[in-house]
Design a binder for these strands. Structure first.
Lengths: 187, 187
DNA sequence: TCCCGAAATGTACAAATGTACAGAAAGGGG
DNA sequence: CCCCTTTCTGTACATTTGTACATTTCGGGA
């Protein structure tokens, strides 16, 4: 209890985390409704019994995996916030961050998986709102609530677009559209 | 009508359609991955055997139900197009159509269900793209490809926003944002 | 009228699923 | 060394699933 790294014997914590992580991967890949104990066990490289030992029910495991995905998204959000703080909250910086974020599809897929799951599970709505609310929060100081919300909604659309379409949106396009929405267009 | 319905017990076409329609309803409500033969049969008010008689496999039935939903979305799109043709393709008209479309959530939910299903089934991508592509098509003549695409993406984000959030977006907000994106100067 | 093909239905069954749990294995304290 | 608690693992089982099909019912043509 006092020492953090001493107590683990055969390491239940790591195992538990591996199971949650495997479940999260599978949710992103095949959807929240298609995960099973056996699939998760196979992905995590543990026997079936391990998945039932750490989580009373599959719903519990699912819920924890979703929270795991939300944590990934939060980490990405934090990175974006610090970048914006550092380099200024301008359409150009935003567009570059977005384009880069779209290229590394991981956090993107995680967030879309959460939102997708929330469509059929109202309890997840709160989590699904997180991304766009945070994004709007970053922008509200510089551009006001109206434009900040519009930009967040647009960025949400951008994410879905890149999730469904093969060709990514160009950085120039993103910058131009964001400049319009945020009202920074230079004539 | 009741008498006729009872009398007309042998009516393969109607029955088939009832099954597809029930499946579509359920897909919207509980997600494409959660529908089963038995749920569909119960919803359609037919015995289990009826669902297997008309469709070789559950996948076939699912696919047809998705196409049914797409047809609903297409009908809504056609309505929007004729309205735009009639009243002019302006941010104000668009905002009003959107606000009205959001209030009647049916076509909205149908489209989001298709997109959601497409996240985990690449074969549905084509269908999922349809809405925003058509929307962009309406706008490209008046506003150019860039702004038309941006507006379509924004509208996609609006739909997701209203699917996840409880409070609807105001018409004034939509009009203002669309005016910015489409480059029509209003003050 | 009767009869035959089409349609409808209930049931059966193998496979997959969530979950429980009896042991086996492991590791530290005596 | 042994023992006892914690951790792990395989198996079992009831339930639900997709699907097949034998049987029943219907309705129109002879």
């Amino acid at each position: 209890m006092t020492e953090a790294a001493v107590r683990r014997r055969r390491d239940p914590e790591t195992r538990r985390r591996a199971i949650v992580s495997a479940a999260a991967e599978l949710i992103v890949e095949i959807g929240v409704g298609a995960v099973t104990h056996r699939l998760i066990a196979a992905r995590a490289g543990v026997p079936l019994g391990a998945t039932t030992q750490y989580f009373a029910t599959l719903d519990d495991l699912r819920a924890e995996a979703l929270r795991f995905l939300v944590a990934e998204v939060d980490a990405r959000i934090d990175g974006i916030r610090s970048d914006l703080d550092e380099r200024g909250t301008t359409p150009a910086v935003l567009a570059e961050l977005l384009a880069r974020g779209l290229a590394d599809a991981h956090a993107l897929e995680a967030d879309r998986a959460v939102v997708t799951a929330a469509v059929n599970d109202p309890q997840l709505r709160e989590l699904a709102r997180r991304w766009s609310q945070q994004m709007a929060g970053f922008l509200v100081a510089d551009f006001g609530p109206q434009r900040a919300t519009a930009a967040a909604i647009f960025i949400d659309g951008v994410f879905w677009h890149s999730r469904i379409n093969d060709e990514p949106l160009s950085m120039a396009f993103l910058e131009s559209a964001l400049a319009d929405i945020l009202g920074t267009t230079t004539t």
